[in-house]
Amino acid sequence: MVGLVVVSHSAKAAEGIVEVAAEMGGDTAIEAAGGDGDGVIGTNVDRISDALAAADDGNGVVVLVDLGSAVMNAEVAIEMHDGEAVIADGPVLEGAVNAAVAATDPKATLESVVEQAEAAADIDKT
């Protein structure tokens, strides 16, 4: 199955988003990579690398990110990862939920899951 990694500046936010997405995600592997590793707000490339390795069963990983350095650290971690991983250009929470659901489709591919994660940008709330 395609796996997911949620990268946020806050460890709590990343874990919370994983919690929300997992409710809809069946057996999808969803890993949180939040905070800078020292209990401080930030992102860290080693944490993201570990999460990528844990989420990847060989079918690739979709990475959901929040702001600024989350994007940069995710890019570096993806460059160093032995496998396929893609950053979804969409909102981190809604994208994670969409992607988690999309990954449970038996015909899901890395592309189809990214597409669904990015489609979350168009969700209407009012």
Binding site: S69, M72, N73, E75, V76
Partner: peptide, 15 residues
Amino acid sequence: VLSEVGGASGPLYGG
């Protein structure tokens, strides 16, 4: 630097 400096400075300086 990439591993130890959190935030954007890790990838920008170290990477």
